[in-house]
Write a protein that binds this DNA or RNA. Sequence first.
DNA 1: CATATTATTTATCATATGATCAACAGCGGC
DNA 2: GCCGCTGTTGATCATATGATAAATAATATG
Lengths: 250, 250
Amino acid sequence: MTTTGFEGDQIRMAEQRNTSKRAPRKQGTTRRRLSPEDREKEIVSGAIEFFARHGFEATTRHLAHELGITQPLLYRYFPSKEVLVERVYDEVFMQRWRPEWEGLILDRERPLKERLTTFYSAYADAVYDFVWVRIFVFSGLKGIDINGRYLAIIREKVLEPVCRELRHAQGLPDVDRIPLSEEEIELAWNLHGAFFYRAIRRYVYTMPVIASDEQAIANDVSIFVEGARKVQRQLIENGTATVSQREWVQ
Amino acid sequence: MTTTGFEGDQIRMAEQRNTSKRAPRKQGTTRRRLSPEDREKEIVSGAIEFFARHGFEATTRHLAHELGITQPLLYRYFPSKEVLVERVYDEVFMQRWRPEWEGLILDRERPLKERLTTFYSAYADAVYDFVWVRIFVFSGLKGIDINGRYLAIIREKVLEPVCRELRHAQGLPDVDRIPLSEEEIELAWNLHGAFFYRAIRRYVYTMPVIASDEQAIANDVSIFVEGARKVQRQLIENGTATVSQREWVQ
DNA sequence: CATATTATTTATCATATGATCAACAGCGGC
DNA sequence: GCCGCTGTTGATCATATGATAAATAATATG
């Protein structure tokens, strides 16, 4: 009646972990003793996967159980759950942005569609990822400021460049002459949203999503570059992109 | 040292609620006695807002506190937290889809851009909403099946119609002759993703998002209808929309 | 092989949380 | 104005959870 459901599971868990990657333990009862560095790495990578799956409200006991260790051991390596969670944030968010990506958008030697497809494909390699997407959404819901900081980078390194290059591609005035408006930035969010919503469908809604990301991204880009021309031009000329009733008819 | 931090707060909370909408209580100490129907309504609507804000892991004590009632009272109206949460799901998801929306997309008397803008604007009235977006994302992360069921409706009532109407608008063969492929449905997700990601930025990331939804939606639609033509045609003709290297150059 | 070091575990604490029940008190009927 | 019904609360329970400390055992060193 008063069973916690954990006592006997340790051996089972240990065996389970062995099937994945760790050195095989001769007997399920033997204690595994790692160097502090290795243990910490195991805890952090396990915590990342664990919190990505279950959210940050999930318990340290549950995490320890999944790691095949006891709960107090976590406190040998991290003074509190909060610190461990901070570490997970850092590990997932830090250095996730690769500076070389920026160049992919800006290289005017290549046609814009190709550049954007190349960029978003490279970006997808890093970001179409269970851990990344879920941690990002979890922390967003929780109101962590890390989201805002990351999205500021996206704005500076992706959205604004996309607007500038789209202007250049169709011979519109430079941002020096007519600065980017919020409405124009919102256009770039169109592409970015279509791109990232695919990841949300896959990893937040756990829907089966079409296999070829390359293909889908190329289509996103094509739709955007073809479709945004007219809107961007209107936006710059009129200061608004309101489509007159006449224009509905095309 | 052993304080729970709740004892004295009840009066304060009661006062706080009074500022919002409830009948003013002459004395902060008096007990408020409602009819079961009214009390239940208060609890449900309070729970919706509360869980949307804090997630479903948030505690019944915290909820009761915010409602200005004591925690045991919740159990007079709901046998368990789980049942209350179920009720919140039902309340938020049920009858959220308005059948008349479907007609907005299908009315071939009007140009497609106008139809889609009208539809997505109407849909935004219901769905660009703090509670809706966050509950949807929370339940998605939690793996609740309600998401999948809702998205099946979206597919049937929005994505497939959008594909059909886009075909019709540019004289492509009917779905009777060439059925919709997953790739083609993925095109419609482009528009839907751009649309819904705006809500995610606003209510999940809590970013300041541009004011005029009407405007932004009209732009989304314009980009999509203008941009998706070529891709859809290629998709149907070639069975794939792979853009040849030559075509990059436009 | 004996011993010291320390990674890991067992036992435990304080508080938090879902849930229950008897006591209290607002409100309608007489 | 008193009384009974019942909406509401205070007290409490069992378990869960973050955190701590002492006991145990794996590994290195001599």
